[in-house]
Amino acid sequence: MLAYTLRRLWQFIPTLAGVVLLVFFLFNWIGGDPAYLLAGKIPNPETIANIRRQLGVDEPYAVQLWIFLKQILTGDFGVSWSTNERVSDIFATRLGPSVTVLIPLLMISTLLGMAAAMLVAYVRGSLTDRSVMVACTVAQSVSILVYILVFQYFFAYQLGWFPVQGWGVTFADNLFRYAVLAIVVGVAVSLAPDIRLYRTFFLDEINQDYVRTARAKGLSEARVMWVHVLRNAAIPIVTNILLQLPGLLAGAFLIERFFGIPGIGREVILAVERSDFPIIKAVTVYVAIATMVVNLVADLLYKAIDPRVQLK
C-alpha cells in the first residue's frame, strides 16, 4: 500500500510538469503580450515597457517559466490583473461560498440518484425502467442554461420563494436562503446523468451470485436490495463522486454566475472575460493537482473498502 502510494506520488511529477508546461505554453506563448491588454485603450510605449517589466514578460521564456514554477511552489501568484486583489486572497474568500453550495448539492443529488437508480435497476427491462431511461435522456438533452433560466424565472421572479440572486453574511442565511435555489437547480441538472450511471452500477451487482445466495437463504427483498446490493454498488458510486469533486468546484460556474454566488466558478468566468491570466493559471494548476490527489485517494479508498481490488 505504501509502496503503491509512493509510486503514484512519483508519477505525479511528469504529469504535473506537463500541466505546468501546457499552462505556460498557453498563457505565456499563445496568449500573447499581456502588456497591450493591460495598458488600456491608448497605450504608449513607456507604459507598455513598464508593465512588461513588472510582469516579467520582458525576460526570456526560461526565466518566465522559472517565475511561474516559483509561483506554483510558493502559492503566490501575485495580484489579479483587473482588481489588484491578491490571487491567494481571492481563493481563500471564494472557496467558502462554493463549498456551501456544493456539499448539500452533492449529498442530495447522490441520495436521490441512488434511490431512483436502485428502483429502476430492480425493475430492469420493465416499462417503468425504459420510460425512466428515456426521460433521463430527454432531461439530459436540455441545456443546463435552460434549467437555470427557467427555475430562476419561476421560483424567484414569479413565485418569489427565493431571492433572485445574492449572497448574505452569515452562514445560515447563505445556506437556507441564498443557496437553496442554486442547490435545487444543481440537483435537477445532475439527477438524470446520475440515475443513468448508478443504474449500471446497480445492474452489475444485481446479477451477482451473492444476491442469489442472499435470496436463497430467505432474506427479504428489502434486505437484499438495501443491505447487500446497496453496499456493493455504493463503492463505485462513492469513487465516482470523489472523482467529480475538483471538476465541480470549478465547474459550477454557470450556477454561481446566475445566482450571484461569489464562488470559485464565478471567479473563473470573470477571469476569462477579463483575460485575467494569473487567476486562470492558478485555478488550472491547482485544480489539476487536486484532481490527481483525489484520483489517488479514490483508488486507495477503493482498495480499503473492497479488499478484492488489486492495486498495480
Partner: peptide, 24 residues
C-alpha cells in the same frame, strides 16, 4: 499516455475555458 494524463487532470470545461481565454 503522458499527454492523456496531462489533459485529463484538468476538468474538461475548465480546459476549454482556459483555451478560450487565451485564444480570445
Amino acid at each position: 499516455n503522458w499527454l492523456y494524463s496531462v489533459l485529463t487532470s484538468i476538468p474538461y470545461l475548465l480546459l476549454v475555458l482556459a483555451v478560450a481565454a487565451v485564444v480570445n
